[in-house]
Simulated scan of single mutants.
Amino acid sequence: MDYVNSVIQYLNDYFAYVMQYQDEIWQAIGQTFVMVGISIAAAILLGLPVGTLLFLCRKGQLYANRWLFTLLNSLVNVIRSFPFLLLVVSMIPLTRLIVGTSLGTLAAAVPLSVIAVATYSRLVEQSLLEVPKEVLEAASSMGASKLQMIFKFLYVEARSGLVLGLTTSTISFISYSTVMGIVGGGGVGDFAIRYGYQRFETELMVFTIIIMIILVQSIQFSGSLASRLLDKRRS
Rank of each mutant, 00 (worst) to 15 (best):
Ser74Gly: 10
Arg159Lys: 14
Pro83Met: 12
Leu136Phe: 14
Arg80Trp: 01
Arg122Leu: 04
Ser121Thr: 02
Leu87Cys: 07
Ser141Gln: 03
Ile115Glu: 01
Ser172Tyr: 13
Val188Phe: 02
Thr170Leu: 07
Glu203Met: 00
Phe151Ser: 15
Thr170Asn: 10
Ser175Lys: 14
Thr119Ile: 07
Arg80Pro: 04
Val179Cys: 08
Leu162Asn: 08
Ile92Gly: 12
Ser169Asp: 06
Leu128Ser: 01
Val179Lys: 05
Glu130Tyr: 04
Phe200Arg: 03
Leu103Met: 14
Gly143Ser: 11
Gly186Glu: 14
Gly189Gln: 06
Phe153Gly: 10
Phe173Ala: 11
Lys133Met: 13
Thr70Met: 14
Ser81Leu: 12
Val124Ile: 11
Gly181Phe: 01
Ser169Val: 12
Ser74Asp: 07
Ile174Asp: 04
Thr95His: 13
Val99Glu: 08
Lys133Asp: 15
Lys152Val: 01
Pro93Ala: 12
Met149Lys: 10
Ile115Asn: 05
Thr70His: 12
Val179Glu: 06
Arg80Val: 00
Met91Ile: 07
Ile150Ser: 13
Phe200Thr: 00
Tyr195Val: 05
Glu157Thr: 08
Val124Phe: 09
Lys152Leu: 13
Val135Met: 09
Ala116Asp: 02
Arg122Pro: 05
Phe191Ile: 03
Val99Ala: 13
Lys146Cys: 09
Gly189Cys: 01
Leu128Asn: 11
Ile115Trp: 04
Phe153Ile: 09
Glu130His: 10
Leu154Thr: 04
Phe82Met: 13
Glu125Gln: 08
Thr95Phe: 07
Phe173Ser: 06
Thr70Ala: 15
Val114Lys: 04
Tyr120Ile: 00
Val163Gly: 08
Thr170Lys: 13
Ala139Val: 05
Pro83Trp: 06
Leu103His: 06
Leu164His: 15
Thr119Phe: 08
Arg199Cys: 01
Leu204Lys: 15
Met149Tyr: 03
Glu157Ala: 14
Ile174Asn: 04
Leu128Gln: 07
Val114Gln: 07
Ala107Val: 05
Tyr176His: 15
Tyr197Trp: 02
Val179Thr: 15
Phe200Ala: 00
Leu166Phe: 15
Pro111Met: 10
Val135Asn: 03
Thr168Leu: 12
Glu201Gln: 12
Gly181Glu: 03
Ser177Lys: 13
Gly143Leu: 09
Lys152Gln: 13
Phe151Val: 14
Thr105Gly: 09
Ser74Gln: 06
Val188Lys: 02
Pro111Glu: 08
Leu112Asp: 07
Glu137Cys: 03
Val188Gln: 02
Phe191Cys: 01
Ser74Asn: 09
Gly104Thr: 05
Gln126Cys: 02
Leu128Arg: 09
Gly104Met: 04
Arg80Asp: 01
Val124Tyr: 11
